[in-house]
Design a protein around this nucleic acid. Sequence first.
DNA 1: CTATGATCATGA
DNA 2: TCATGATCATAG
Length: 223
Amino acid sequence: MPKSNILPPQTQDELMQRCQILAGKTLGQIAAELKVDVPENLQRHKGWTGMLLESYLGADAGNQAEPDFIGLGIEMKTMPLNSLGQPKESTYVCTVSMRQSGDLVWQDSWVRRKLSHVLWVPVEADPNIPLAERYVGNAWLWQPTEEQDAILKRDWEELMDRIVLGEQADITAKEGEYMQLRPKAANSRILVKGVSAHGEQEFINPKGFYLRTSFTKLLLLTA
DNA sequence: CTATGATCATGA
DNA sequence: TCATGATCATAG
């Protein structure tokens, strides 16, 4: 994906206006406007759709650990929909790091910062539809309700507690109601420094926070 | 290595 | 069938 020459939106209204223009277009049309090639499939281009739409909307965060629209504090996420119009995949939030554990609390966490204001952009993701022919839907802004925030907070605290205790390597994706912890790396042979249950340094597979599909389904219902 | 963007593919 | 665990691309 070439670097976008599109300026970031200055206001939330401007961002939503761009989303209105986006809605009803196919990925192929958008790619043509941006003069980028459409890959045959996403097998070796898993982040292509997200990068394309961020580029179109003028996201300016790049690969910084910041919300996509830095000035607006808004994070954009695509929501891939299956043939039934329901979310097909879980949503990656961010990696977990020992640097953010310990004295850090939910209110200041990386997860909460990213999820505090999200622009959800629904996109057709039925594998039977060629990539270029998939339509983008109406995007909407979401901020967690008190109830949603409370459950996300609980999930995060339970998982972070385990990490602080040196149990990160033992955490499986089965834990967490709305948010889970899963491998996040180029492959399972990638190892990073962690802390064992005995407080010693050990090498473990890097993991990241993901929103469960069951949760994003709820968000779609209330959109 | 870290971060960004995610979907793939297999076992239960 | 579908969630878990594994994997792919790219920038810095």
